[in-house]
Simulated assay, not measured.
Amino acid sequence: MSKSNLVAAHAPAPAARRRPAADMLARPTAGIVLLLGFYVVLLIAFALLSPFFLTISNLANIGTNMAFIGLMAAAGTPLIIGGGLDLSVAAVAGLAGVIVALAHASGINIWLGCIVALVIGGSVGVLNGVIVTRLRLNPLIVTLGTMSIFSGLSMVMTGGLSKPLFVPAFNWLGSGRLLSVPFPVILMLVVFLVLWLVLSKTPFGRFVYASGGNPEASSLLGVPVERTQMILYVVSGISGAAAGIVLAAMLGAAAPNAASQHLLTIIAAIILGGTSLFGGRGSVWGTLIAVLILGTLNNGLTLMNVSSFWQDVTRGVVLLLAVGLDQLRVRLQG
């Protein structure tokens, strides 16, 4: 065999060329583009199916009803990117509402009650963070346990009953408007914007991605992994308390389990938005679009008189499809 033939025989095979569609799907921004496209399709479909869908009041209702979920999903996104997980956030939301209601019933200034609720929410975050980062316990088990603890405390404090909260200035937090835009929606968007700036424009944001992507290697390179995760747990706890305050203000009452039923929606929004449960990858804007998609689905199907059971089925199918597409995109990037 000649030298030229020998070299040709042992030369690596040329890499298979991917199709243009595959190349587009492999881009980092492809997930958000797909989500936006799906959201636009949903808007068009429900607008054609229901004459009440695209009204200003209905769109405002979608934003208002999903705002408190968005607050918790927004803070949960960097936590999961950083390698953590917080299942207790909805229980903290219920506890915060209960604390505000009981403080008001006891004659304590309601705004002082809100501050106390936020401090307790942050304290729960510290508790979760210490157990996870210092004791090295699985965050799923840890936050599942604290979820049960604080849900139970809320039930004990209220006897399982809702507590009324009719204070006009306080209720404005959940039903008021600024420039015709519902205040809860404005608050949610501000939180998303702040978190995006932190994740994309600050060294702490780089620490978050590094901590979730490869915590061992990041620690060796000087990244404060434990401190980063601790801060993320505190932010998650505070966001849960803030969401509980907004929800109580919107309902005019504090129910101990008011937010617990939305825990799956919070996690679904984060995953649907493209955040990896294994950490190191995700975007708060993807989570925001996912929150809007889930809220639009719920609202549109309700307007069409679709049973709540079939709505659960639909949300599950959408979530599975989104995860499947996201995994395909990750493999193409690889």
Rank of each mutant, 00 (worst) to 15 (best):
A96V: 06
Y233W: 04
L263M: 10
T29C: 14
L34T: 10
I120F: 12
S307H: 14
P139G: 04
S308Q: 15
V198Q: 06
S2M: 04
N128D: 01
S180D: 15
A169P: 09
N65Y: 11
L87A: 07
A9Q: 12
L42Y: 03
V194H: 03
A117H: 03
V208Q: 00
T55K: 12
V235C: 10
L127D: 15
G121Q: 05
I81C: 00
G274Y: 04
L263A: 11
A210L: 10
L42W: 04
G122Q: 04
L277Y: 07
L49T: 10
A11C: 09
V291A: 08
L54C: 02
D326C: 08
T287M: 01
I245E: 00
P28G: 04
A241N: 04
Q327D: 14
A210F: 02
L197T: 10
T77W: 01
L247H: 10
L247W: 07
A105G: 14
V124L: 14
M72C: 14
R281D: 10
G252F: 02
F52V: 14
N5E: 07
I186P: 01
F166S: 15
A249Y: 00
L49F: 09
A15Y: 02
M304S: 14
S239V: 07
L179Y: 06
E216V: 13
V142C: 01
T143K: 00
A322D: 03
D86A: 09
S4T: 10
F207I: 08
I120V: 15
V317F: 10
G82F: 00
A290T: 06
T314V: 13
P78R: 03
I266W: 01
G125T: 12
K3D: 13
I149T: 14
R17Y: 05
V119S: 06
P14E: 09
G107V: 13
V33K: 13
V194F: 11
A8V: 07
